[in-house]
Design a protein around this nucleic acid. Structure first.
Lengths: 210, 210
DNA sequence: GTCTATAATTTGATAGAC
DNA sequence: GTCTATCAAATTATAGAC
């Protein structure tokens, strides 16, 4: 495997475990098996490593969320489909995407340009929640809170079931149902949904080009 | 207000926003309005500041969770009561307890002694979930996952509703209901619960001795 | 109780040999 | 593409004056 790719993977593991600011370039080099200055042959700076990971963490999910927010049909089904995609995207990634775009990273000035993309992803998620409230499918506990809570439940699942989710897309769908049961007025609506989009969800889990 | 207390507060804000490892003692001193070396008149090290915050973050919640895990009555009511306490504890604190006991901090060797307390808190939460599953009140999505997901939903709420929760304990109870609706087999059981423990929940939100 | 001065270490990044 | 050597800046913490 190319050194550049190994750097991305090891860096993502360290960033997820210790945080971006607390991870030194020497640690990354050691994990990869090269000396610290050799990193800078592949990336111009430590921040550039993070930016490539941010692109992987935010890119496809934003596209999928915006497409589903603009699609037709009940919000319940579209939101469920996004949550299943999100779980499989995180777990199917060769990188550890846990807490990658948290505030502690995004507040640093060198990542200011990524605020817009993260805002688009959040906006699309909140749009689906707002649609469900407007159409009488969801209770109104606050759009921002509901969207954040749903995301955090999915992240919890990817952490606890890290090894099991990709091999079991059905588990991902049950977890998305669990996450949404608090939001949905009629829990029975989720039974249909889980059967409906079970077909295309697994293919959403993709690995990055290597 | 004593300088020591101001240090704890400003440090907690910075730790929550940037992470422990990425927060320098110079920043803490600057936020307090003193020079960096003056911090060490009040605390022996940066880690000791964090440990005092950890004690506040984990101490009472662990006592409450263990007491409720050992108490009688339906797990639904006891777990709901804990979640309301947790939300009011976090939001009522003068410190920012968000992500204080995350892995990135707890994995550092200087905080190894705190693993036991965090494990007790997690154990008590998971015990309540396990009781509910055993007694047929909760669906079984995995004890560890369910307990973590519930906690993360409460933390989401404290972040989004940071200013509004302490003034509105009823909101905290509705959020706890929202968090638990995915877990409970019969959502109607939560209507009774919310009315039952509404009396004593608000007094759970305490400030530390100053 | 806060300050200045400073020690000892670690940080991200560069230069240049091979 | 990786290495050694090194730099400038930032880190936590200490010593001692006031």
């Amino acid at each position: 495997m190319p050194t550049r790719e190994r750097i991305l993977r090891e860096a993502s593991f360290l960033f997820a475990r210790k945080g971006y600011g607390a991870t030194s370039t020497r640690e990354i080099g050691e994990a990869v098996g090269i000396r610290q200055p050799s990193l800078f042959h592949h990336f111009a700076s430590k921040a550039e490593i993070m930016m490539e990971l941010l692109a992987h963490s935010l890119g496809r999910p934003t596209d999928v969320a915006e497409a589903l927010a603009a699609a037709d049909g009940p919000a319940t089904g579209r939101l469920h489909r996004y949550l299943v995609f999100d779980a499989l995207h995180i777990v199917g990634s060769p990188y550890d995407l846990g807490g990658l775009n948290d505030d502690d990273v995004m507040e640093l000035p060198e990542f200011r340009e990524w605020h817009a993309l993260r805002a688009r992803l959040r906006g699309a998620r909140e749009e689906m929640v707002a649609q469900g409230i407007r159409d009488g499918e969801f209770i109104d506990v606050g759009v921002e809170f509901a969207a954040m809570a749903l995301t955090n439940v999915i992240i919890s699942a990817t952490q606890v079931y890290s090894g099991r989710l990709p091999a079991d897309p059905g588990l991902a769908m049950r977890i998305a149902v669990f996450a949404m049961r608090g939001l949905v007025i009629d829990p029975a609506a989720l039974d249909d949904v889980a059967a409906w989009d079970g077909r295309d969800a697994p293919e959403s889990a993709e690995a990055p080009t290597r």
